[in-house]
Amino acid sequence: MKKITGLKRKDLLGIEELGKEEISLILDTAKSFKEVSVRPIKKVPALRGKTVVNLFYEPSTRTRISFELAAKRLSADVINISTSASSVVKGESLVDTAKNIQAMAVDAVVIRHSAEGSAHLLSKELKASVVNAGDGSHEHPTQALLDMFTIREHKKNIEGLNVVIIGDILHSRVARSNIWGLTKMGAKVKLVGPPTLIPPFVKSLKVEVFYRPEDALSDADVAMCLRIQRERQTSNFFPSIHEYVKVFNLTMERLKLARKDCLVMHPGPINRGIEISSEVADGTQSVILEQVTNGIATRMAVLYLLLAQKSKVEWGTRRRRV
């Protein structure tokens, strides 16, 4: 694989469009950034004078705080906009809101929105860098990057690993980004869930599909659980939560079918006792909180690679008032 030194792109919209060498560069850079968060002074000056706006149209704690800390530890200034406290409630469109933000000379917009493609739409309208922090059920690229980073920390290499993703694949942007990322990096991905929550198109993505965890977990190096996204479910995809738990909950018993050193992952927030048992979530194989720690280093790497480049706007090119 040929090594590259920079991302030749303005935005990070999804994993689908990234090359293997770009993913590797982000993961290698994140490794260097991890050390910054354990220094006595948790800050480096790389993005001094840059402004990052977190524009969140959906509730989030982890991702928003993670992006905010990542930007702040790089010395960027951060503004958080949540839709309930902004002009969005007055009926302003997404593009208008973003263009107004850009008019205040910001360098990056981190966007989370319930509509698929919202980050792509903004990237075409804005000169500022756009980072997709989750667009509907489409992609959540930084989550997949931090998952791959965490896997690599434990397993050295992603190539050749067996990764099992269990749960609501249909509504999961985390699953989509991880499928693209993990298969590009050479892992074998197995999906498990009720047939109603596995979209037919995934079969074109070099993955295997199973309907019972027991059939997929043997030889697993990584078991990744997903939350049942009731807020996105428009109809009844399974008879009852009780039945879902009975078949799909990752219990210690089921985990024992996997390799002894199988990692347990979850993008959070976890619903204990539904997709994962407390015993497994808090167990020795769980790296769920490491994922959260690594999220900061990964997002620092993404912001650094997108923003610490040769300035696109040169001095003196600002339009003169006539």
Partner: peptide, 10 residues
Amino acid sequence: LTTISAQPIV
């Protein structure tokens, strides 16, 4: 960092 053309590896 914002003036050189090749971005250095961290």
